[in-house]
Computed example of a mutant assay.
Amino acid sequence: MTQALSRHDRVLGSLIGGAVGDALGYQVEFDAWPFIAAEFGPAGVTEMRFNRVSDDTQMTLFTAEGLLLAAPGGEVESVRKAYLRWLNTQREPMPPMASEGLAAQPWLYARRAPGNACISGLAAHDRVGDASDWRARTAGVNANSKGCGTVMRSAPFGLRHSPAAAYDLAEQCSALTHGHPTAGTAAGAFAMIVSHLVNGETPQRAVSETMLHLRRDLGRSETADALQRAYMHAGTVPPGPNTCAKLGEGWIAEEALAIAVYCFLGTDDVRAGLVAAVSHGGDSDSTGSVLGNLYGAAYGHAALPREWSSQVEGREVIAALAGLLSAEPVSESAV
């Protein structure tokens, strides 16, 4: 077990850490490594010039809100409705009158390169509305998509639920927008790792237990293989600028998770790990966000670089959600 930390400190650390990694990576999302090196230097993205978060943090917060508002057994439907509220923030310039909760926060209405599958998948649900047969009428949404949009939003499942329940809920909610099985497996694996960490497991054990869970089903092999490559890479190549290139660019679910896990297992230096996770050509905000969630859950809020965690966009709202999310952990029997 890692050092004794309160549940609140781990939850706060995970949500703020995710926002920090997101903001660092959003500065260079879509940029190739040579351009990043020329702009920030060969050491990579070592400074937060802008504190803006992307759709990664936005959707993570709406996941948390959906879980907080859910009745036992109604988590998927509550998260679905929360995602539809997020969809409205991407369509409107500011909160409509009488908006409540996250939907009343003007800063969340910024459109920061949201994923196409998230937008189109939720649009299908929006057309159905609150119909009782929405599951049948939206089955197979984006059936071939396994973009990382399902992974980057799934930490709250692990912050709120047991490892097994977190996996199942993240997998089910992944299918709201991404129909490819690997999208669900990667989201579930991420949520399971986070849950193990919040329970005090070491990074190595949290990842190993999750890999064992994946290996029980051949249909999960794509994600399991990606995590195995990350595990091996972490043991041979210390994380640094562009050292994750061997694992992909992070646009798809299992690659984003693998890059974050590689950096997570490769170093417990939070600053160095976050720099490595975003200093590459690809989906830098997502890989940074996922790693920040992992680091915060493992080492707590105090382990995050203060000059980054203190200034990240939306900090007060994120901290308030963390307080609510950590107040009453849900038992597995409630899911």
Rank of each mutant, 00 (worst) to 15 (best):
residue 271 R to P: 02
residue 271 R to K: 10
residue 218 L to W: 13
residue 56 D to H: 04
residue 201 E to A: 14
residue 33 W to M: 09
residue 139 A to R: 15
residue 83 Y to W: 05
residue 64 A to D: 02
residue 257 L to T: 07
residue 13 G to A: 04
residue 103 A to H: 01
residue 242 N to R: 12
residue 31 D to K: 13
residue 226 A to I: 04
residue 49 R to F: 01
residue 294 L to F: 05
residue 195 S to E: 05
residue 253 A to F: 00
residue 164 A to Q: 13
residue 135 R to F: 07
residue 286 S to L: 08
residue 239 P to S: 08
residue 249 E to I: 11
residue 245 A to G: 11
residue 1 M to N: 14
residue 166 A to P: 06
residue 226 A to W: 02
residue 50 F to D: 15
residue 221 S to C: 14
residue 212 L to I: 09
residue 143 A to G: 11
residue 258 A to Q: 02
residue 136 A to P: 09
residue 259 I to N: 05
residue 293 N to I: 02
residue 208 S to M: 12
residue 266 G to R: 01
residue 108 L to A: 02
residue 1 M to E: 15
residue 236 T to H: 13
residue 37 A to S: 15
residue 163 P to Y: 05
residue 99 S to G: 01
residue 157 F to H: 09
residue 133 D to G: 09
residue 257 L to R: 03
residue 1 M to Y: 13
residue 78 S to Y: 06
residue 318 I to G: 04
residue 89 T to I: 04
residue 264 F to V: 10
residue 96 P to Q: 09
residue 71 A to P: 08
residue 82 A to L: 08
residue 190 F to M: 14
residue 153 R to T: 06
residue 123 A to M: 15
residue 183 A to D: 11
residue 197 L to E: 07
residue 144 N to Q: 15
residue 43 A to D: 14
residue 143 A to V: 15
residue 175 A to M: 13
residue 156 P to S: 00
residue 87 L to E: 00
residue 37 A to P: 12
residue 135 R to P: 03
residue 160 R to S: 14
residue 323 G to F: 01
residue 71 A to V: 05
residue 290 V to Y: 11
residue 137 R to F: 12
residue 107 W to L: 06
residue 34 P to R: 14
residue 201 E to P: 06
residue 134 W to Y: 07
residue 170 A to C: 06
residue 68 L to P: 02
residue 193 I to E: 03
residue 233 H to P: 09
residue 320 A to I: 10
residue 321 L to R: 00
residue 66 G to N: 04
residue 208 S to I: 04
residue 112 R to W: 07
residue 226 A to Q: 04
residue 272 A to R: 10
residue 12 L to D: 08
residue 281 G to Q: 03
residue 277 A to C: 03
residue 197 L to A: 07
residue 134 W to G: 00
residue 189 A to V: 07
residue 14 S to W: 09
residue 217 D to P: 08
residue 45 V to S: 00
residue 81 K to L: 12
residue 324 L to N: 13
residue 269 D to P: 09
residue 213 H to K: 11
residue 41 G to W: 02
residue 154 S to H: 04
residue 39 E to K: 14
residue 43 A to S: 11
residue 317 V to H: 07
residue 286 S to Y: 05
residue 164 A to V: 12
residue 307 E to W: 01
residue 49 R to N: 07
residue 267 T to L: 12
residue 131 A to D: 15
residue 34 P to Q: 12
residue 8 H to T: 13
residue 241 P to C: 09
residue 284 S to C: 11
residue 264 F to W: 01
residue 28 V to D: 06
residue 147 G to Q: 03
residue 227 L to P: 08
residue 314 G to D: 08
residue 186 A to C: 11
residue 260 A to G: 08
residue 315 R to V: 03
residue 309 S to N: 03
residue 277 A to F: 01
residue 169 L to G: 06
residue 128 V to S: 05
residue 1 M to K: 12
residue 292 G to R: 09
residue 114 P to E: 00
residue 102 L to K: 02
residue 74 G to D: 10
residue 153 R to H: 03
residue 154 S to I: 06
residue 293 N to Y: 01
residue 246 K to T: 15
residue 123 A to D: 15
residue 42 P to W: 13
residue 220 R to G: 05
residue 51 N to V: 10
residue 33 W to K: 06
residue 253 A to V: 09
residue 4 A to Q: 15
